[in-house]
Design a protein around this nucleic acid. Structure first.
Length: 372
DNA sequence: CCCTTAGTGAACTCATAGTC
DNA sequence: GACTATGAGTTCACTAAGGG
């Protein structure tokens, strides 16, 4: 999308504003793209903490960080503490005994059932989303994060990115792969990734990047964040498409971001209690339309200019390109900037009954206050 | 310069169980 | 009965690199 014309639009528009605001920042791609490529301060908003940690890793700095130094201190200490843990020997023995069987996976679950006081990952996700080795490693990395605020956030972001690359589930963490005939190879593949290698790689990448002007992140509801905006803000909106709460897809990363010491989890998906998972009106079929309308109304009242992207068809949360165009038209002067055609993977489709790839037609609306 | 191979993703949605 | 949460399934098209 950024390559397909959205990037150009963001850069050319943002220079006319005092601030760029990404209200549903997600993985932070758009917010970081603007922060790295313009002299406009960026504010990134998301309901989930993992998302704002990732964005803050770039928005929070205007200079590169010395990653070699951090790696030596932080990762070095974590490795040496981990290796001294009596559990580590058992972890290595289990890893050496690798076999493509259900029993090997169940053994991992049993091993991670032993209590660890280091952190929440081992007991909650070891043997499910992570191999015992990955789980223990992440716990030590998280327990040993640097104290200084910016550096701590950078390392945490590297951990979160590494976790999302190692996790044994199809890209999100709604449920881990199960040791069935067809999926067990995905488990083996994911579990054999070295958490340290992925963490270093992400740290080096993140540390080398930075904003041109320091930005800001807010972990909270988009509707509330609008209270802080004004007519000098360019607001980017790429709202949820799904009727399933996103907090379900990213709860493992969220656990890391929140710095829990210990958690209790339930079900196949190893979820924390639902009251502790943020719920968005935008991901709820019966509330999404009203939520969107009230968001657009509020933004119009603040005279914010808006760039809105959405698939042009109907999404599972009930929102559609047509509905968005209609609501936008009520409050704004709307310019249909472009529609981008592309294909995206549904990642999990099987081409029988559910497509593995769907063609998407992505709508980009530029919405200007009517008063101008 | 063309063909083959290896690597890699901006992650969903349906069916069913559960709750009010 | 209406609505929501959870379980279940579990890429393949595209690009870059490498080889002939």
């Amino acid at each position: 999308m950024l390559k397909n014309g959205l990037g150009k639009l963001l850069l050319s528009e943002s220079e006319h504003f005092d601030r760029f605001v990404d209200l549903f920042t997600g993985a932070g791609f758009v917010a970081c793209y603007v922060a790295e490529n313009t002299k406009v301060p960026v504010m990134a908003v998301d309901l989930q903490a993992y998302s704002t940690v990732l964005a803050q890793a770039i928005l929070g700095r205007t200079k590169q960080s010395n990653s070699i130094d951090i790696i030596k201190k932080w990762i070095g200490t974590a490795i040496s503490l981990r290796n001294k843990d009596p559990l580590w020997e058992k972890v290595e023995a289990h890893a050496r005994a690798v076999r493509k069987t259900k029993k090997w996976v169940l053994d991992a679950r049993k091993l991670c059932g032993t209590e660890s006081k280091i952190g929440p990952i081992w007991n909650a996700y070891g043997g499910h989303y992570f191999s015992p080795a990955q789980a223990l490693t992440f716990d030590y990395l998280l327990a040993d994060l640097p104290k200084e605020k910016n550096r701590r956030n950078l390392c945490l972001a590297a951990c979160i990115s590494a976790a999302s690359e190692c996790v044994a589930s199809p890209g999100h963490t709604a449920q881990p792969f199960q040791p069935t005939k067809s999926a067990i190879s995905f488990i083996l593949d994911a579990w054999q990734r070295d958490a340290i290698v992925y963490c270093k790689k992400n740290l080096i990448d993140l540390a080398s990047r930075h904003a041109q002007i320091t930005g800001k992140v807010i972990t909270g509801d988009a509707l509330n964040a609008v209270d802080k905006l004004n007519s000098k803000d360019l607001v980017f909106i790429d709202p949820p498409y799904s009727s399933v709460q996103y907090s379900r897809f990213y709860h493992v990363l969220e656990t890391m971001a929140r710095g829990y010491q210990k958690i209790s989890v339930e079900g196949v998906g190893r979820y924390i209690p639902i009251k502790d998972r943020p719920q968005s009106q935008f991901s709820n079929t019966s509330q999404a339309k009203a939520a969107l309308k009230s968001l657009i109304r509020k933004l119009a009242a603040k005279e914010c200019t808006v760039i809105f992207t959405f698939p042009s068809g109907e999404a599972s949360n009930g929102l559609s390109g047509d509905y968005i165009r209609q609501i936008a038209g009520e409050f704004y002067k709307v310019e249909d900037y472009t529609t981008i055609n592309g294909k995206f993977s549904t990642l999990g489709g099987n081409n029988e009954g559910r497509d593995a790839r769907k063609t998407s037609s992505e709508l980009i609306l530029l919405m200007m206050p009517k008063s101008e």
